[in-house]
Design a protein around this nucleic acid. Structure first.
Length: 589
DNA sequence: GTAGGGTTAG
């Protein structure tokens, strides 16, 4: 899921204009970068791990004269690439203590480290150093901060900062800053805002480049709005900006996910005609698309084809193939792919394990899944929340409540940190085994802690209460939803309707149907099927007849569960068949 | 600063 909750907090943004006023005072930038030519240090060659970095740093600070600032900078950058963000900050503090001069580049790296650690608040707290040292803010620093805000989902803060920078003329945004803002917005589902920024750029001095167009096109593709994506493609072509491999990959992915294979072929030929050749991304997109359609054989063919074209499969190729087999229930084949991957010296990553664990769980082979879970740590990897969620779901599926409780308790104490899905899986599991008190006490605890909740979480609770004969309590949770600003969706309504129908409260069910229509939540196939089963269960055949006409008019049809139900009813009471209207002529399916 | 993989309620 691409869409992520938007933070409303605005607290940590310091007043930008106050920085601006200070900046315009007469402090001059530090100018000691030149003239310090010390011993030649090749950071890249010398630093292979954190220890190397710290040792080199300790050597550097004892040198007289000190190595030049770009060498310090290079060292910090190398450490960032090795993801040792905290160490960067420690060394920076050490530099301050030792009165080693700093540059804007060094500060940018430290700010970036804080951002990458998801501590954008600390990153902001470094800005006063710029002022004290007379180092000007530049567009790179602010772009880093904006990226840091997005990384913590502080979308509003990021946009406010960007707007302030522009309004107060603190810095002129370049393509990269625009790109960062647009990418942040688009990845969180704000396609319209992304598009507005494109239009703004087109009118301003900083003209959109290929990166910008690619962000916008990808946003539309992710929204499954391929028409809009292709119209942007045509716009960029008209403006003389040729699409590149990234553009085509986004579009091909969008088309694959919509199952529009003919258009995929057209785009594929178009790119090759432009001498843009498919890369490992392109092939992975195709392989994933085919696997998700269930045609793993074709995916295997594409894999052979890519090898023939000299494009080597990577870890994602193997993971996608594994998932393709798991989706068809062929977990043993997936396991073979896993082994082949290891033979080819590609070490499985946490995705590989998650995919395989999910495959085993779906086959109810939870013991195998648990064994893989143990293997993760042995391979130097760490189980993720997703890993444990998959295991938990699998355990509840087979009734392993004790194991599930142990996994959940371990998550709470040592991690990985449970998220909203974890809690939903556990509450759902408790309800399924009639552990209503445990489910409700967990639910109440999470509500008290004001843990992030979503509509799916509440739907689990409502469903659990209904299934355990507590329709009144379910209803009061349902009523609460609008108060806490979580509008019910079609699944929530369906859950309540199912609850009413099972109890024979068909009038309440119908009133719920009216309510959902009033709130512009369209009933889906499940809604109609639940009603038909309700009418069948309580022998309301003539009402069922009227209802089924509406159902057919809207193009919905029986699902497997309703069909099975109907067969049983007809077996006992064959005259029911006469009550079923002639639907097939009108039915779209 | 842009593209590809995993969990998730009726």
């Amino acid at each position: 899921m691409r869409r992520i909750l938007v933070s409303k907090s605005n607290a940590i943004i310091p007043s930008i204009s106050s920085f601006y006023i200070l900046r315009s005072s007469s402090i001059r930038p530090y100018s000691s970068l030149k003239g310090k030519v010390g011993v030649r240090i090749n950071v890249e060659n010398e630093v292979k791990c954190l220890d190397d970095a710290v040792n080199l740093f300790n050597r550097m600070v004892r040198m007289k004269p000190l190595p030049s600032l770009p060498v310090f900078c290079k060292l910090l950058k190398t450490m960032i690439n090795m993801k040792h963000y905290y160490a960067v900050i420690s060394l920076f503090r050490e530099m301050r203590k030792l009165d080693i001069p700093i540059s804007e580049f060094i500060l940018s790296n430290v700010i970036n480290s804080y951002c990458l650690m998801h501590r954008v608040d600390c990153a902001f707290s470094l800005l006063p150093i710029h002022l004290k040292s007379g180092i000007p803010f530049d567009v790179v620093t602010f772009t880093t901060l904006i990226r840091g805000l997005f990384a913590e989902n502080k979308v509003t803060d990021a946009v406010v900062l960007f707007k302030n920078l522009v309004r107060e003329k603190i810095c002129e945004p370049n393509e990269i800053m625009y790109g960062t803002v647009m990418n942040g917005l688009s990845k969180r589902g704000h396609t319209e805002k992304t598009l507005s920024l494109l239009r703004l750029m087109e009118q301003g001095n900083t003209k959109p480049d290929i990166y910008i167009y690619n962000v916008v096109i990808d946003a539309f593709c992710k929204d499954r709005n391929l028409d809009a994506a292709i119209s942007i493609l045509n716009e960029m072509k008209q403006k003389g900006i040729p699409p590149d491999i990234v553009t085509y990959n986004s579009l091909i992915d969008g088309l694959c996910k919509l199952g529009q294979w003919e258009k995929v072929k057209t785009l594929f030929s178009e790119m090759v005609n432009l001498n843009i050749y498919p890369d490992v991304h392109t092939f992975n997109i195709l392989i994933d698309g085919l696997c998700k359609e269930g045609i793993v054989e074709d995916a295997e063919e594409v894999m052979k084809h890519m090898v023939g074209k000299g494009v080597e499969p990577d870890i994602i190729t193997y993971n996608v193939m594994m998932d393709g087999y798991c989706l068809r229930g062929q977990v043993d084949r997936a396991r073979r792919v896993f082994d082949i991957m290891i033979d080819k010296c590609i070490e499985p990553d946490i995705f590989s394990y998650n995919i395989l664990i999910n495959g085993y769980c779906k086959k109810k082979e939870v013991a195998q899944a648990m064994q893989l879970l143990g293997e993760i740590s042995q391979k130097g990897l760490k189980p993720e929340t997703v890993t444990c969620n998959t295991i938990l779901h699998g355990l509840f599926e087979v009734g392993g409540i004790g194991d599930a409780k142990r996994v959940y308790a371990e998550m709470l104490s040592v991690g990985p940190k449970p998220n909203i899905y974890t809690h939903s899986i556990v509450i759902d599991g408790y309800f399924r085994y009639g552990l209503v008190e445990e489910a409700m006490s967990l639910f109440n605890k999470l509500e008290r802690k004001r843990e992030n909740t979503d509509i799916a979480f509440y739907t689990v609770v409502i469903n659990g209460l209904c299934k355990n004969g507590k329709l009144d309590e379910a209803q009061s949770v349902f009523e609460k939803l609008s108060l806490i600003g979580l509008p019910p969706n079609v699944r929530t309504y369906n859950t309540m309707i199912t609850g009413f129908c099972r109890q024979g409260l068909l009038d309440e069910a119908k009133s719920m149907l009216r309510k959902m229509k009033k709130n512009s939540c369209l009933p889906d196939n499940v809604t109609y099927n639940v009603f038909v089963q309700g009418f069948l269960r309580w022998s309301k055949f003539s009402e069922m007849r009227t209802f089924m006409v509406e159902m057919a008019d809207r193009g919905f049809s029986f699902d497997a569960s309703t069909a099975g139900f109907l067969v049983n009813v007809v077996r006992e009471n064959p005259s029911v068949l006469d009550m079923i209207p002639e639907l097939h002529s009108k039915n779209k399916y």
